[in-house]
Amino acid sequence: MLRYLKLYWYFVIQRFKILMEYRLNFFIGSISTVLFQGASLVALWAVLRQVPSIQGWTFEQILLIYGLLTLSKGINHLFADNLWVVGRDYIRPGQFDRFLVRPINPLFHLLADRICHDAIGDFIVGLSLVSYAMVQLQLPINLASIGFIILMVISGGIIFIALNLITAATSFWIMDSIAVTNVVFHTNEFAQYPLTFYHRSIGVLLTWLVPYGFASYYPASYLLGHEIGWMAWLAPLVALVCIMIAYKVWLLGLRNYGSTGS
């Protein structure tokens, strides 16, 4: 374990050396997510300034959901962005074999190979939204609530990583998984708003099949004092189950891996 931490640190340092070679790109990457999300948020604000609330949800409450989801997404973006391109950049060109002949876990190597600094933008947006919403809504900001948020954001991040890991593993069979990941990943957009906005089936889907709801709607409901019972605390368990299943799928794919010849 300690060895892996040391190795990870080493990878991070190397990555930063590369990034610092292209400082302008580093800066632009970091603010790119801020710009995109800023545009969507201004649009959301423009609509919601004309109405007091939607089905009981105010603008600030929706921002809390949006912010929590963005933070979880940021964790996935920072640590596991390479899962998107495992097929295109590693398996297809035969680069993946490199990982298999080294004495460390191939998945660890894949993830550590590219830490994605663009996630800084996600953290800036997410943190600002959550703190703004908490203050505006006069929610208690204390050790308990902060601890709860951290726990939920980490669980949410793991759920994101787990789902991407499952879809990424399909590239062991179909070579390039970006198209698969793309579709599954985008279901997270539903979790930007309260799940009650949707048809019941979508709510069930986002809770039990692609459980992004645990990264946003459920923790936000708990913070707002809505009555959701034990669902508020389920996220860590769901995350654990997801990541275990995902890792099994990954290993299954790895056993199926036949390289690209020559």
Binding site: V51, I54, Q55, H186, T187, E189, Q192, Y193, I202
Partner: peptide, 16 residues
């Protein structure tokens, strides 16, 4: 998927 999310959002908005 995104279109479904959008439309649902607007429907919720108009429900009241």
């Amino acid at each position: 998927l995104l279109t479904i999310a959008y439309i649902s959002f607007w429907k919720a908005l108009y429900s009241e």
